[in-house]
């Protein structure tokens, strides 16, 4: 049984041998593209995002599983930034102690030599809420999802039951907001009423920018597609802080050859 990282590596290798097929072809179109380009389609529902386990814990494996994990802040921030561009009057609400972003997520254009002007829109439109327990957290998410002045709610959703997710889904439908719920990776088998479920895991990169494998696990009301179209490698853009489909994986010469070949077949 291959892990997701191993599977991508293998597919990349096969794609390299075959001349750019495989993941590159899958990355050219799919739900991830739509998600990264415009998050309008996510309105009126909650979407679960499974993060990764935290690294370097001195505690034992069981203790680490109980407490330590990272939400996929990089991809969630990208969606939030697109939402700020689409609805500049509305706010972004971050709920939960784990969903507290830092400068790299909130400020665009950090670390770019010579660039003085930073993109602070997301920082100025963000509200951070830190409830003390789960009941307060669910109450706060519910309230924020129903608010007309909020466009995106990014919340921690660990140990969320089916009833809770159903309640939040109804709230998001009622308010027309986007609910992005980050969950720990070991809760993938938990039942949920979320409209879509995504998994984000780290991917090795050749440059200094982080890469992630974004995989669509489940999408309600949509016909299942091939496995290749449901996952994609994305990379953080150094200059803007946004996330885009990795150009190295979706290499254009290979895609051009593929399209040219299909055109020849048609002729």
């Amino acid at each position: 049984m291959l892990s997701s990282v191993g599977r991508v590596r293998l597919e990349s290798a096969i794609a390299a041998i075959e001349g750019g097929r495989g993941v590159a072809r899958a990355a050219a179109s799919g739900p991830i593209h739509h998600l990264l380009a415009c998050p309008k389609g996510l309105r009126g529902g909650i979407h679960e995002w499974f993060g990764q386990e935290r690294f370097g814990d001195p505690l034992g494996p069981n203790a680490a599983r109980a407490r330590h994990w990272w939400p996929p802040i990089g991809v969630l921030t990208h969606v939030a930034r697109r939402a700020v561009e689409l609805w500049p009057d509305r706010r972004i609400v971050w709920i939960g102690g784990r969903c507290r972003p830092y400068l790299g997520a909130l400020v665009g254009g950090l670390g770019v030599p010579g660039q003085v002007k930073r993109d602070l829109r997301l920082l100025h439109r963000s509200i951070v809420v830190e409830p003390s327990d789960q009941a307060e957290r669910i109450w706060a998410i519910d309230l924020a999802l129903r608010c007309a002045g909020v466009s995106v709610v990014i919340a921690e959703g660990s140990a969320m039951t089916m009833a809770m997710s159903r309640r939040l889904q109804l709230s998001a439908q009622d308010g027309g907001t986007i609910g992005l719920v980050a969950r720990p990776p070991w809760e993938r088998r938990t039942l949920s009423a979320a409209r879509t479920r995504w998994c984000v895991s780290p991917a090795p990169s050749s440059n200094v920018e982080p890469r992630w494998i974004v995989e669509l696990l489940c999408c309600k009301g949509v016909q299942p597609t091939s496995e290749g179209a449901r996952q994609c490698v994305v990379q953080r853009d150094h200059e803007t802080g946004d996330v885009r489909v990795d150009a190295h994986v979706a290499d254009r010469p290979a895609a051009a050859q593929e399209s040219a070949r299909s055109l020849q077949h048609t002729a």
Partner: peptide, 30 residues
Amino acid sequence: DARSHDRACAQLVDTMVNRLGNSRVRQLSL
């Protein structure tokens, strides 16, 4: 419009502050 959004957001913040406390509903600044 923007004013109605601000008003709705202010009501949300007030409700949260009333239950969670002022220190748990914050904005981040540089």
